[in-house]
Structure formats: C-alpha cells, structure tokens
Computed example of a mutant assay.
Amino acid sequence: MKRLFDILASALGLIVLSPVLAVILFLVWRQDGKSPLYKGVRAAKGGGSFEMIKIRSMVAGADKTGVESTGANDMRITPLGHFIRRWKIDELSQLWNVLMGDMSLVGPRPNTVKAVAGYTQNERKLLSVRPGITDMASIVFSDEGDIIKDAEDPDDAYDKLIRPWKSRLGIIYAENNNVLLDIRLIWLTVLAILDKPKALSGVQKVLNRLGADPALISVARRDRPLQPASAP
C-alpha cells in the first residue's frame, strides 16, 4: 500500500509541478550555464547506493570541497539557491527518485555513504526503510542551516547537535511507518513552511502517540538551544 501511494502521489506531483520545475531549472541553468540538477550518491535501503536528484542550489562542484553539512551562510549557496532552499524547492526533483523506487515520499532523509559507514548499530535501523523526501526530522530541523551556520566545523556541529536527535526521530519512524502516518507527516511538512510552531505541535502529538522518549519530545519542541548529545 505504501509503495502504491508513493507511485501515484509522485507521478501526480511531477505532472502538476512540471511548469514550476521547468521555470526553476531554467533559472538555475541561466546563472552559470551548468546543469541545474545535482546528483548526489546516497545510501539506499538495505545497503548499496543510488543517485539522489536535487535542483542545484549551490555553485557547480560544491560537493568536491569535502564539507558535507551546509550552514545557511555557506558561501557555496547561490543567490537563487537561498530562495530555492527557503521554500524547499530543491527537494521537488526527488519525486523522480520516489517514482523510480529509490526513495519514498516519507522516510529518514538519505545520507551519504560515508556518513552511513559511521552509523552506530542502532542507527542502522534507518536503512530498514526507503529514505524519504521528508520525515519528522525534516520538520523539526527545517532550520538545520541556521543551527550550524556559525560553526567553525559544520560537520562536527551537525554530528553533535542534530544527528543524535535526527537519528532518533528516523528510527521511531522506521519502527512505526504506515500510509496514514505518511499522510500526516506530508501535511505537517507543508504546514511547517507556513507555520512552523503549529507543525512542531503536530510532530509532538505524533511522538506522544508513538510513545517516544520524553527527552526527544522536548527537543522536538525546539523552544530551547540544542545541546551536544551522542548518537543513539
């Protein structure tokens, strides 16, 4: 049922959004004459890898700098890229990955093969489901770039402040995923763009219903500074 939902929703999304995608792709190409699409190698469900397609929001070749985490003030982000990231437009092209079966509409965000190699045994549960375009962590940490923007080492800041909680949220989803939960999280993702506090409240209700740890629910409120923690 989940796969059928993914196929129908992604196909419809690509058809409906094709005019918007065409305009954005042209504008990105016009900046520098380079491909408007970025293909990044990501870890697949159960192991292996696939090419995740994103609309390019950074300068061409940005992935070759060796820095995987991106702060909001990263100089590699183009002027148009800031707009694309603000409205999550760069994720829309991943509907193709969903249609092809590499990804799902909802699931833990796909990570690099290098990052997955450093997963704890518990974090490897994230590979038990298809990676997704959105999930609870995507809502809770939609401001990920702002969280690490002033860090001297963005990758280290990500590992200490975001990864521990992002992984826990992804594990809870992997253990409880179903179509009804997917529909709920898709709605909360859209709501987060318009009213993040209400979306966070919705995520907290989901976590409460799933019996999540109180500490995780507290972090999901995002009403206090994040503190360094260990990966699950």
Rank of each mutant, 00 (worst) to 15 (best):
V23W: 12
E144F: 08
L12Y: 11
A43P: 02
L188Q: 09
N208T: 14
N97P: 09
P225G: 06
I186N: 02
L37C: 01
P232W: 12
G61Y: 15
R30I: 10
G118N: 15
N178I: 03
I77K: 04
K125I: 09
E123S: 12
I15S: 03
F83R: 11
R163F: 05
G71L: 01
S69L: 06
P19M: 10
I77Y: 09
I171G: 14
S35Q: 13
S218Y: 13
S69F: 06
L105G: 04
N178R: 09
N176P: 15
I183E: 08
Q94Y: 10
V140N: 05
P214T: 10
R56N: 03
I172P: 08
D150G: 11
G101K: 03
A199V: 00
M136L: 12
S57V: 03
R124W: 04
P228G: 00
R224M: 08
R76A: 01
L27M: 15
I84F: 02
T134K: 12
A44E: 06
L210T: 10
L169C: 05
A43Y: 02
P232G: 10
A220H: 01
L37Y: 01
R85E: 03
W187M: 07
L92Y: 04
A151K: 15
M75T: 14
S49C: 02
L25C: 05
V140T: 08
V116E: 14
L14P: 14
A117C: 04
L99I: 07
R3P: 02
Q204T: 07
T134A: 12
G101Q: 04
Y173W: 14
I7T: 11
G202W: 00
T65F: 00
A72H: 15
K196P: 08
M52L: 08
Q31D: 12
G66M: 07
L185R: 09
G40F: 05
S93P: 06
A44P: 02
K64T: 07
V59R: 13
A229M: 11
A231P: 09
R221M: 11
I139F: 04
S230I: 13
L27R: 15
E68A: 15
K198N: 03
W29V: 06
V98S: 02
K45T: 04
G132S: 04
I77L: 10
W96Q: 08
V28F: 03
G107D: 01
M52F: 02
I147W: 01
G47E: 07
G61I: 14
L126I: 08
P154H: 00
L207C: 09
P225M: 04
